[in-house]
Simulated scan of single mutants.
Amino acid sequence: MNFRSMLSFALPLLLAACGDPQVGSEYPGEALLTVEGTIVNELSVAPAGPVDAVLVWNTVDGSSDVESFPARAAVTGSFPASFTLSIHEPPKEIALNDFSKEGLVDTRVGIATIEAALDEASAGEGTSLGVDEDHVIVYVESEMAADGFWSNFFGGQVSPGFHVMDVFRREGEVDAELQAAFDACDAAATTEAEHKACYGHDAKSKIRPSAGGSSTTLTVRMAPSQDLTYPDWH
């Protein structure tokens, strides 16, 4: 099963930089996820303007679009610059990966990279200033099937809601652990749906829940695009 990214856009969020949140007076409600991180600069030329930390959601089906922030604050001061990112609502429906058309009955899941950009319109692989190469933000819409595609993909069931996850890239063309899991799953499958669910083991990267959960510190590295490795999960 060949999955291809076709959509990236920014989730509404509030971003506080260096203790100066710069948000509106209206209370946005309780945060569903709050994470902290640092943006480091390895560019030879200073950015052309203030830098934002941006969530970019990647799906395998959908039209390209960019959603603007209802509120945001630029990362200011000298680098490395710290930021606090609070998410107050789930991603839009179009940001969720839905494989029901592929015959997979499971929850819908959103996977986002954390990037540095001058604004949300310039975010995305190849156009942003930088990315956290080792983490993604995952949103699980509802209960995950025990032996479905997504539980195979994440190495086990993941509860509904937002999660910080580690990204482990393959060292070569074949990951022995993933290949063994796929072979065992495929051998035990008796229906077409079960066979398709096994492709959760056939990923370009292993994505697993971070041991530190929301306390995990994110590091967004700004560098020339050819020197960055964006988390690639499909």
Rank of each mutant, 00 (worst) to 15 (best):
E141F: 04
V45P: 00
E120H: 09
E67G: 12
V51G: 00
D166I: 06
G172N: 14
A112G: 07
C18F: 08
A223G: 03
P12D: 15
D227L: 14
S214H: 04
E133F: 04
S225L: 13
S25C: 12
D65C: 10
T84Y: 02
P70H: 06
V54L: 05
E102C: 05
E192T: 13
V51I: 02
E30K: 06
S214P: 00
N152Y: 06
V167E: 02
P209K: 11
G24Q: 09
S44P: 01
S205V: 10
P90N: 11
L13H: 08
S44A: 14
E67C: 05
L228A: 02
G130C: 12
R170E: 12
E143M: 13
D166H: 05
F3V: 04
L96G: 03
E102M: 15
M144T: 07
D61V: 07
A71L: 04
P91M: 03
M1A: 08
A95P: 01
D232P: 00
R4A: 03
S63V: 13
L218Y: 02
G172S: 15
L7Y: 13
G24N: 02
P224S: 11
R208I: 11
A121G: 09
A203L: 11
D227G: 03
D175F: 05
V75Y: 00
W233N: 02
T219G: 07
D134N: 08
S122E: 12
D147W: 04
R72Y: 15
S159C: 10
C198V: 05
S210D: 08
L104M: 14
E115Q: 11
S82I: 05
R170Q: 11
K196A: 09
H135T: 10
V174Y: 12
F9H: 13
N58Y: 08
A223K: 03
A197K: 02
E173K: 05
G212S: 10
I207P: 00
M6I: 05
V109N: 01
R169P: 13
L55N: 00
S5C: 13
D106I: 13
E133G: 07
T217L: 14
I87Y: 03
L14N: 06
A112T: 05
N41D: 12
D175E: 10
A53I: 02
V140C: 14
R169M: 08
R108V: 10
G212R: 04
Y230Q: 08
T216S: 10
I137M: 12
P90R: 07
W233L: 09
G77T: 01
E120A: 05
